[in-house]
Computed example of a mutant assay.
Amino acid sequence: MSSEHMQIGEVAARTELSLRTIRHYEETGLVIPSARSQGGFRLYTEADVARLMVIRRMKPLGFTLDEMRDLLDITDRLDAAAGDDLPADRREELLERLRDFDRAAKKRVEDLRTQLSRAEEFAAALAARLTRVPAP
């Protein structure tokens, strides 16, 4: 096995994703192991790990599998067309879709901050209430 490749257990440890989750992302086509060992074990590269990290970061923001797939497709196309291989109008279309994801992510982060603030207020109110409970 090449030192460039990792088995799924190492990838799981590095990404903090379960084996089951990684396999699920494979089944849905979000990430495909770059190779297989002679024994049939999935083998992943640093690029596969980076792809899984994108997915892991999108999940808490509530992006769907289809949205994850769309973003990965956009970034794959932009990366593959590094330079001037992509027509300008197609490149701009992909960049605009990427900007849409950026705006959506920022909005979802702000929504999560609001939810967290409300949750912290609630927890503080409960803690304050507990301090006011008379001793038996």
Rank of each mutant, 00 (worst) to 15 (best):
M1K: 12
S3K: 14
S3Y: 14
E4Q: 15
I8N: 00
I8C: 00
G9H: 05
E10T: 13
E10A: 14
A12V: 01
A13K: 14
E16K: 12
R20P: 12
H24A: 10
Y25K: 03
T28D: 09
T28W: 04
G29Q: 05
L30P: 02
L30N: 07
L30C: 10
S34R: 10
S37E: 06
Q38A: 15
G39W: 08
G40I: 04
F41D: 12
F41L: 09
R42W: 07
L43M: 06
Y44D: 07
Y44C: 00
T45P: 09
E46M: 02
E46H: 03
A47E: 13
D48S: 05
L52K: 09
M53A: 06
R56M: 06
R57N: 13
M58I: 02
M58T: 01
M58F: 07
P60Q: 04
L61N: 05
L61M: 09
F63I: 02
F63T: 06
T64V: 02
T64D: 00
L65H: 03
D70V: 00
L72D: 02
L72K: 03
L72T: 01
T75S: 13
D76C: 08
R77L: 05
R77Q: 08
L78T: 05
L78C: 04
D79I: 01
A82S: 11
D84L: 15
D84Q: 15
L86D: 05
P87D: 13
P87H: 08
D89V: 14
R90Q: 15
R91G: 08
R91E: 11
E92N: 09
L94K: 03
L94V: 01
L95W: 04
L95T: 04
L95M: 12
E96G: 13
E96M: 13
R97L: 01
L98H: 10
L98I: 03
R99G: 06
R99T: 14
F101R: 10
F101L: 09
D102M: 15
R103A: 12
R103M: 08
A104P: 02
A105K: 09
A105D: 03
A105Q: 11
A105S: 10
R108C: 00
V109D: 03
V109I: 15
V109S: 07
E110S: 07
D111H: 10
L112P: 06
R113E: 07
R113F: 07
R113L: 04
T114M: 08
T114V: 10
Q115N: 09
S117T: 12
R118M: 14
R118C: 10
E120Q: 15
E120W: 12
E120V: 09
E121V: 07
A123F: 04
A123D: 08
L126I: 11
A127W: 12
A128R: 15
T131P: 03
A135D: 06
A135H: 11
A135W: 09
P136W: 14
